[in-house]
Design a protein around this nucleic acid. Sequence first.
DNA 1: TGAGCTTGTCATCTC
DNA 2: CAGAGATGACAAGCT
Length: 621
Amino acid sequence: MMEMEVMHSTQQDMDLIDILWNQDIDLGARREVFDIHHRQKEHALQKQLQLEEEKRLHLMREQEKALLAELQLDEETGEYIPRPPPSAALQPAVTPLEVTQNAGFTQETGDGMSFDECLQLLAETFPVEQTQTPSVCLETPAVSVPASSTMMMMSPEQPALSPAALSSGQPAPPQRMSPDLEEAWMELLSLPELQQCLNMQMEDTLQTTKYPDPASAEAQTPSYPSYPPVQAPIFSQLTSINNVETNSLNVGPAELMNTFDGAVPSMPPSDAFRQLKADAPQLDASFSGEGFDGVFYPPAEQDKCSGQHSQGENERMCDSPNKVAFTHMDLYSLSPGDSIHSSKRSLTADHHDSDSGVSTSGSPNARSPGRSVHGGGSLGYSDSEMEEMDQNPGSAESHYSDMFSLNFELDHLTASEPLSELTGQPQQQEKKPEHGAAGLAEESGQDDAPFTKDKPKRRSNGRLTRDEQRAKALDIPFTVDMIINLPVDDFNELMSKHQLNEAQLALVRDIRRRGKNKVAAQNCRKRKMENIVGLEGELDSLKDERDRLLSEKSKNTKSLREMKRQLNTLYLEVFSMLRDEKGNSYSSSDYSLQQSTDGSVFLVPRIKKTFKSEESHLSPL
DNA sequence: TGAGCTTGTCATCTC
DNA sequence: CAGAGATGACAAGCT
């Protein structure tokens, strides 16, 4: 009903405007200004445009989502990397490097033949080899497994890679070829087109995978040395590799590792190392040679590895330096500096004691395990004593901790393994690597501390924390990490299995409490920062919204003002055209135009102000 | 040398 | 009620 009325009055409005407009069509006022249908049309058009725009945005968002779905956020680097295939558990993940590499494969080689063309040529030239070595080079690289994946999937018994495999990622041809085959193989390799093609492919591969960014490469493969770039012409490499029947692989591990660098990071460093060794046992010499030892292990570790243990022990103990079996005292020797700078350390320890002025029996020996555990002579340290211990905590280690920061963190991560053996604890920690790792990440590195602002870690990892020093001083037979990160049940079990004196128990509980609280504080701060960031974002969006509304308001005000002005102009013009019977114009001060509810327009005499005011005084509305 | 930032620790509260 | 986590406050160390 109301709508009907509105419609009706609107129609009458328009009629009135039509009349007025027709009366003075050349006044300059455009009819569109009053035409509600026209405005409705405009509105509809605008709406349609908006809809289209929204559709377009939605489509773009969908596409972006689809793209992101194929990518995975690397939480460490913040980069998006291609999501590994569902069978990633069996196959090494495809790294971005490999993606680049594969992308390179599918590219045309530019000034020469494409790789596909090479393959085509091969297929035409050597139809026999096609059947015997079907996988050498005749599949298109587009469907090939990435070179590195192939490498990693190879069993140790598999022969070294053929040149074609090196370049294309295909499995190697049979290692023992028949003379005919070998000849054909050599001929094949000597084909200039193939050389060119392989060289280009190899260069592509090397360019994309050989010289990774040192920082990123190091981050991904902490233990890997950086090899000098391979400068030899690819083809000479290939031909040397081709002498596989002599079983002397001339290509060094450097080339192999560099060539397949892209895949290595996807495998745990030690695994990759073992895999390499298994794949090419003859490479051991290279790996254990000078060039590597200096890079993999500190001299002290080298000595341990090379001098004191049999090969098997070397495998077990030196394969990853962090797995060196240790006693509880060795737990604190995880910092490599300990073995080398022990004299320095003792000096600093002396310094502590002499500085402290507190009687802790004068020498570091006073804190010897025997005494503190059984004698109970060091029952608890006062805070000041603890502070004394804190004052110069292993500055000599910082150099080594810088050098071995990455390995040292790994040391920490695995430190509990041998210890659990030591304590007879079932290997529960192995089942909970995430727990320990997560705790440690937070504990040691503050890796994801939200407000570090890319500053380097100020406390170097090699430096013993206060609690570590205290634990060492009281000869606590567990690592601080264990104390902090073990689940409560395991922790209690561990405590019950060891006869700890009161001071040790108190310290262990304190360490656990402090450690937990430290992590909690870090989480709390992280949350706080995230909240702040979130609120800032919200604030920004609210400000945007406010700005938008303000600008809309001002636009509307402006538009309204303009409409009023036009209406006023129109009104005056219409009014000025009205004439009485005598042809005189009406005075706008005496009359006004008014519209009744039924749409009729009347010329109404104005009520005099005095009268009006009286009236309003008499009967206020 | 002081300001500002980060981090560890303690006390207290809540679950 | 004990224990774990959350959080404010403070202090120390670092830039």
